[in-house]
């Protein structure tokens, strides 16, 4: 049914397609560390000493009950439920910054347990709901 030219074109197309998929796969595999926007506390604790010198982004959950504000300084713990890192930051935080919510901190590690942030970004999750519903969910939980 298909003539020979069409068949040839299908073969050309499929070979280019497979080739580009393989290429992209390896490209993304090599770039993996650059593609990651932030590291979790466990990834940070596994990394070698060299990474301490560079600016990195640290991401995770703000541990509930860990936020301490003092004048202009804010101190909290970022956790991924395995490892924890203490973050210190001077300045204002985004409106969505809250305990138990996601956060990304840009800055430098002082040591493996201590992070000096230059910028704080709030990360919000994929849940959207009206405030009344959130309230009733809280009450049900109690």
């Amino acid at each position: 049914m298909l003539n020979i030219k069409t068949k040839n074109r299908i073969i050309i197309f499929l070979s280019i397609f497979t080739l580009s998929i393989i290429l992209t796969f390896f490209l993304l595999k090599t770039l993996r560390n650059n593609v990651l926007y932030f590291y979790s506390p466990s990834e940070v604790s596994k990394s070698d000493e060299n990474s301490l010198k560079n600016n990195i982004r640290l991401g995770g959950m703000v541990k509930p009950g860990s936020v301490v504000t003092d004048n202009n300084e804010i101190k909290f713990i970022v956790t991924d439920y395995e490892k924890e890192i203490i973050v210190i930051y001077q300045g204002t935080v985004p409106a969505l910054f809250a305990e138990g919510k996601g956060v990304v901190a840009e800055g430098k590690l002082q040591d493996k347990k201590f992070f000096l942030a230059k910028r704080i970004l709030a990360k919000h999750d994929e849940n959207y709901m009206p405030p009344e519903l959130k309230e009733s969910m809280k009450q049900n939980a109690k």
């Binding site: 993996r32 926007y37 932030f38 991401g59 994929e126 849940n127 959207y128 709901m129 009206p130 519903l133």
Partner: peptide
């Protein structure tokens, strides 16, 4: 696949949709 600042998908045809019906 990667850690991103952008949140994951809320509307999933196969899985659970995490947007309240009123939205």
């Amino acid at each position: 696949w990667w850690s991103t600042l952008h949140q994951p998908a809320s509307v999933n045809l196969a899985g659970e949709t995490t947007i309240h019906i009123s939205m």
